[in-house]
Deep mutational scan, measured.
Amino acid sequence: QSSFEIPDDVPLPAGWEMAKTSSGQRYFLNHIDQTTTWQDPRKAMLSQMN
């Protein structure tokens, strides 16, 4: 996992939702293809902008 956290005020891509496990770990739900991931989809968006 990357060492940086994206602030919560940065919006997720369309169709995504952020949730937390009972222990507080963030994960991401993709409602478009109905998958979940630990990888923040905003990181991919930001790396494409740089």
Rank of each mutant, 00 (worst) to 15 (best):
E17F: 00
T21V: 05
S2V: 06
H31K: 14
T35C: 15
M18N: 03
Q1H: 01
Q39L: 09
L46S: 14
Q34W: 03
Y27I: 03
Q1A: 10
P41A: 00
M49F: 14
N30V: 00
A44I: 13
S23L: 11
K20N: 10
S2P: 03
F28Y: 07
S47Q: 15
R26A: 08
M49K: 15
S47C: 13
P7L: 12
W16N: 06
S23P: 03
G24K: 04
V10C: 09
F4L: 08
R26F: 06
G24P: 02
E17D: 12
G24T: 03
D33C: 12
N30R: 03
M18I: 08
S3G: 04
K20L: 13
N50P: 15
L29A: 05
D40G: 00
R26I: 13
M18Q: 10
S22V: 11
W16R: 03
F28D: 03
F28R: 00
N50E: 10
M18K: 08
P41G: 00
A14W: 07
T21D: 12
A44N: 14
S22R: 12
M18P: 02
Y27V: 05
F28V: 02
E5A: 11
Q25C: 09
A14E: 14
K43A: 04
Q48I: 07
P11W: 03
W38R: 05
Q39H: 14
W16G: 04
F28C: 02
D8C: 07
P13R: 00
P13E: 04
T21N: 06
D9Q: 10
T36C: 10
A14G: 12
A14F: 08
L29T: 08
Q1G: 06
T37I: 02
Y27T: 03
P7S: 15
D33I: 07
R42F: 01
A44L: 12
G15L: 02
I6W: 04
R26G: 05
F4K: 15
S3T: 08
W16H: 03
M45T: 14
Q39W: 10
N50R: 08
E17Y: 00
P11C: 09
M18G: 06
A44H: 10
V10D: 11
R42Y: 01
E5Y: 10
W38K: 07
T21L: 07
E17C: 02
L46G: 14
S2D: 15
K20R: 13
D40N: 02
E17L: 04
I6L: 11
P41F: 00
E17I: 00
K43V: 10
N30C: 10
H31L: 09
W38F: 12
T36W: 01
T36R: 04
D33L: 14
E17M: 05
T36K: 02
T37A: 04
S22C: 10
R26E: 09
M49A: 13
I32V: 11
S3P: 12
I32W: 03
D8H: 11
D33A: 11
M45A: 11
W16Y: 13
N50A: 10
P7H: 15
W38T: 07
M18H: 04
L46E: 14
S3I: 07
D40P: 03
W38D: 05
D33K: 09
G15P: 03
I32T: 09
T35W: 11
M45W: 09
S2T: 07
P11M: 08
G24V: 01
R26W: 08
I6S: 13
T36D: 00
M49V: 14
G15K: 04
Q34L: 07
T37K: 02
S23W: 04
F28I: 02
L12D: 01
R26M: 13
K43C: 05
A14Q: 15
E17R: 04
Q48G: 13
L12N: 00
S3R: 05
A44E: 12
D8W: 07
D8G: 10
A19D: 09
E17S: 13
P13G: 04
S47D: 13
T35G: 03
P41M: 00
Q34I: 01
A44D: 14
A14I: 08
N30K: 01
G15I: 00
E5K: 08
R42E: 02
Q39A: 10
A19Y: 04
A19L: 06
D40I: 01
P7W: 06
A19F: 06
Q1D: 15
S3Q: 00
T36S: 05
I6Q: 07
Q39N: 09
A14H: 09
P41N: 03
G15W: 04
D8A: 09
N30L: 00
S47M: 14
F4Y: 14
M49G: 15
N30A: 00
N30T: 01
K20V: 14
T36M: 02
Q34F: 06
Q25F: 07
V10W: 04
W38G: 05
K43W: 06
R42H: 01
M18W: 05
Q1R: 04
E17T: 12
D40A: 01
L46T: 15
I32R: 10
D9R: 08
M45Y: 15
I32E: 15
N30H: 04
S23R: 10
S23N: 14
R42Q: 02
N30Q: 00
Q48E: 12
Q34R: 14
D8Y: 05
A19S: 11
T35K: 06
A19Q: 09
D33N: 15
R26Y: 03
W16P: 02
T37N: 01
T36V: 08
S47K: 13
T36Y: 00
T35A: 05
N50F: 10
Q34N: 06
S22D: 12
T35D: 04
D33R: 09
P7E: 08
I6E: 03
L12G: 02
E5V: 12
F28A: 02
D9V: 07
W38V: 07
G24N: 13
L12Y: 08
Q34H: 07
Q1C: 05
F28N: 04
S2W: 04
I6V: 08
M18E: 15
T21K: 04
H31V: 08
I32M: 07
G24M: 05
E17V: 05
W16E: 04
L12K: 03
S47P: 14
K20A: 11
A44K: 05
S47N: 07
F4A: 08
E5M: 12
Q48P: 14
S23F: 09
F4H: 14
Q48L: 06
L46Y: 15
Q34S: 11
H31Y: 06
E17N: 05
V10M: 14
S2N: 12
W38Q: 07
S22M: 10
M45P: 13
Q48M: 12
D40C: 02
E17K: 06
P13S: 02
T21Y: 03
K20H: 13
L12R: 02
T36P: 01
L29W: 04
P7R: 13
A14M: 11
P41K: 01
L12W: 03
I6P: 07
K20E: 13
S22A: 13
D9I: 09
H31P: 05
N30P: 00
S3C: 05
Q34T: 05
D40Q: 01
W38S: 06
S2M: 13
G15A: 06
T35V: 15
